[in-house]
């Protein structure tokens, strides 16, 4: 149990009174990469949002443990401070809030420590370079006027700068062209390289997983996990689709 990071214990969740997730259980250990696949509307994004504590979704059953502690009732910021992270499927635009000062501010809130400007700026520039982001984006308003691809890169930039212990990537590959998928994938690999960083990658596209190490694959259908396997399951779904699980 020493290596267990996240325990999802029989979680059911509803949005606007309608139950989307039914009795979902899943354990994620330190350093592991899990993939969550499933047809549209299966509840994949709901699970990501429930794990992060989006108040729109109500936990109707079960519990979520992080480091063995029950975080089911904690707000999103507290979960983030514990080291959780969610890369949004549709990152929001916040006018007047510059990307770089936002990340720095968030880092400061999360770690409770001052973040030295010079070092921060160096890290930020290096990470943006890794992600093929134009340095001018650092001073732009958070996601405002960013293309779909730049928004996703902005999420991975935040991931690498925040350096959480567990990250949920919600369809980070959707709407990206081939080159952008490659870049984002490199960013994720960079995160995997770091010690103990765990991942839950939500996708219905195998492309982004090609160059990533995957430990487990789960298939979610109609709010239930119907199959768990290793990396080869991704390939199988790529060939045969979800038909067999319906």
């Amino acid at each position: 149990m020493a290596d267990t990071l996240l325990q999802i214990c029989g979680v059911s969740a509803a949005v606007e009174g309608e139950e989307i997730l039914h009795d979902v259980s899943l354990n994620i250990n330190k350093g592991e990469t899990h993939v969550l696949m499933g047809p549209n509307g299966a509840g994949k994004s709901t699970l990501g949002n429930v794990l992060m504590g989006n108040p729109v979704y109500a936990l109707t059953g079960g519990s979520i443990l992080f480091d063995g502690e029950d975080i089911s009732k904690e707000s999103a910021d507290k979960r983030a401070c514990r080291g959780m992270f969610l890369s949004f499927q549709n990152p929001l635009e916040v006018p007047g809030l510059a990307l770089d000062s936002f990340i720095r501010n968030a880092l400061r809130q999360r770690t409770g420590k001052n973040v030295k400007f010079m070092q921060f700026n160096k890290d930020l520039m290096n990470t943006m370079k890794l992600l093929n982001m134009d340095p001018s984006y650092a001073e732009r308003d958070l996601n405002v006027g960013f293309s779909g691809g730049e928004k996703k890169k902005s999420e991975i930039l935040q991931l690498l700068m925040m350096n959480p212990r567990f990250a949920i990537l919600d369809e980070t590959d959707s709407g990206l062209d081939v080159d952008a998928v490659k870049t984002v994938s490199e960013g994720i690999r960079e995160y995997q390289k770091r010690e103990d960083g765990a991942l839950l990658i939500i996708t219905h596209n195998a492309k982004i997983l090609e160059s990533l190490h995957v430990d487990y694959t789960h298939v979610l259908v109609k709010g239930r996990i119907v199959k768990t396997g290793d990396a080869s399951l991704v390939e199988e779904i790529g060939k045969n689709g979800f038909e067999q699980f319906l």
């Binding site: 989006n54 979960r79 401070c81 949004f88 809130q109 999360r110």
Partner: peptide
Amino acid sequence: FYLMSRGIS
């Protein structure tokens, strides 16, 4: 929620 998910109250 987006900002909170980054650790901001």
